[in-house]
Nucleic acid binder design. Structure first.
Lengths: 340, 340
DNA sequence: ATCCAAATTGAAAGCGCTTTCAATTTGTCA
DNA sequence: TGACAAATTGAAAGCGCTTTCAATTTGGAT
């Protein structure tokens, strides 16, 4: 198998020392005489030696490999996070192993420990927390993982759980989004978002309602359409919204779960003869790469995903168990217009 | 470390057999008495045993892990391939480890063997073949990899190299794209594509010129703009194209390297007051998820990326060393219009 | 020159598995 | 019933590393 198959033994004999010593310099232990260290380093250089990660892991040492669990990659939102994470990992000489949730999480977070099988030095977890899984169950799972390796939670996070985390303050983001629209004069603001069985969406709803309340707007149930995470769902959600309302009560602005949904919804709006943004303001979330190129260009929330990925890895590596909020900001483009 | 830490020894004693026997049933060896097999299987079930992949790899057995090398993931083109690949891997009980090229290929394919360090059962390689790397160098690298694990090449492939592969016939695709446009009556057809230092782009150019020739159109150097793989590059490439041409010679159609470039280019076109598709037909490649939602919706080549990912894994697993072409088809939408 | 602590090195065990190879059991045919 | 091949099992080595723990060397201090 191993083609370049140089082992620690080869280095040892080349340098005329024991494998223990080689192992020492490999791991950067301090108590090695400078002369010896140099000899070994030369041998390593000469033979192009590369430590075998599997053997390392098995011997109980660091593997130099981190992991990241992400729901999927087709949504660029996650791909950005991944990309940030890899770059940070590389920067500190680590490998990053991706587990796209699809792999393993058919059964929810409880399936996670199974994938901890490969020995990782730590893992970044982007989980979703459906209510039904229950906090107790989740906590149990996380405790189990915690016993075998450090981790940090990102994205949506259960604030009740005392783990290192970088999370989106969805309530704040949502409230701010609503405020932006009310600031533009909108009063009929719909929200096309997720079903409220995940912590994430629950918080969004809270923020949505807070935002409305602050502007003295009464929450309407029929302005709140549940919707999954795709373009098509966005399209049909808007149809569902409009079809159940007399034209006079159609919203003047709609907040989409994310840019995917916003994209779908915009196409749908046109089929109703709605001009964008004149007849309907749309705001998304994620700031996907093509958002500026839609017609009209999409106003959205930039979630700084790459930076999130970077920060997650750094936090993981730091060993710190800090809990912080992820940065974000609203990007004004042309899909929202003042309403009079 | 190992939290659920059940080893083959635990199973062995639970089942009252030797670890050798456990190993046998684990690997599905035939010569185990049915009674024994059942006992062991029960023990495995009871103790929720999960074989340790690292140990396996080190002992020289199958690790149950495949790898895939992809240039990056921000372009959904690759994310789709990855997604297909994971699903096929899961389906056959394998893990899939992603190496996004960024990780390791700073120095070109020659850096590949280094990452073969983790013992993989096989790997899917999506490489790009810049001319300068040279076929000899590449071949050497591939041979080296070949010695340590089976692989299959996907995407663009050097046809001279006798390795299992699923490749895009870029020349055919490109020729067909040109024909589509000439069929619509276009005569001034520009091509905004990659620099011709990669095999991939070389073939596209060949197809482009073939397509033109077949329609009796003379190739113009100034209709051929080199461009990298991004929206922004697409934008500026179009500017470069138009700025160097008198309005009367502006192309009536433009073929973009891919949908990313097409997207950027369309935005740019509008700044020149060009109406799409009336004044300019645009055709992309990749059929990214948002292509139907652009204005106008983008005519493009669907590259069946998920299926490619699936097929690559299957081919890898089959051990077959077949070489085949990847499927594709043109999707007509609204960004191209007949030209009179 | 002598002695002891500190610094440096190495021997050996063990991580969890696969893989010969040998030992034992079983089954079959005479 | 005995003998021999086939089927089934197990002992032990080894994969490449880390990690005690003990042995050796070094360097001051006396």
């Amino acid at each position: 198998m191993s083609s370049g198959g140089n082992t620690i033994y080869d280095i040892a004999s080349a340098a005329g020392v024991s494998i223990t010593t080689v192992s020492r310099v490999l791991r950067g232990e301090p108590n090695v005489a400078q002369r010896t260290r140099t000899k070994v380093e030369n041998a390593i250089e000469q033979l192009q030696y590369q430590p075998n990660a599997a053997a390392r892991g098995m011997a109980g040492g660091k593997t130099g490999t981190l992991g990241i669990v992400l729901p999927q990659l087709l949504n660029p939102h996650y791909a950005m996070i991944y990309t940030g994470a890899v770059s940070a990992a590389i920067e500190s000489g680590q490998n990053l192993q991706l587990f796209s949730r699809h792999d393993i999480l058919g059964k929810g977070a409880s399936a996670l420990p199974a994938l901890m099988n490969p020995h990782l030095d730590g893992i970044v977890l982007y989980l979703e927390y459906p209510q039904r899984e229950g906090l107790e169950q989740l906590e149990k799972t996380l405790n189990e993982i915690h016993r075998s390796m450090p981790f940090v939670l990102i994205g949506t996070v259960a604030p009740e759980l005392p783990y290192p985390a970088i999370s989106y303050n969805m309530a704040a983001i949502m409230k701010s989004t609503v405020s932006y629209l009310t600031g533009l004069g909108h009063r009929r603001i719909a929200f096309i978002g997720g079903a409220a069985d995940s912590t994430n969406e629950l918080r969004r709803d809270i923020g949505y309602q807070q935002g409305l309340r602050e502007a003295g707007i009464i929450y309407r149930d029929d302005y709140r359409i549940p919707c999954s995470d795709t373009l098509e769902a966005g399209s049909s959600a808007l149809r569902q919204l409009l079809d159940h309302l007399p034209r006079s009560e159609w919203p003047s602005a709609v907040i989409a779960l994310n840019d995917l949904v916003a994209t779908g919804l915009m196409a749908s709006a046109r089929t109703y003869g709605l001009r964008l943004p004149d007849d309907l303001s749309v705001i998304g979330c994620d700031n996907l790469f093509y958002a500026p190129y839609l017609t009209p260009s999409l106003t959205t929330i930039d979630l700084h995903q790459q930076q999130l990925g970077i920060n997650a890895i750094r936090l993981l590596l730091s060993g710190d168990s800090r809990r912080e909020n992820a940065a974000w900001h609203l990007i004004e483009r042309n899909s929202c217009r003042p309403y009079f």
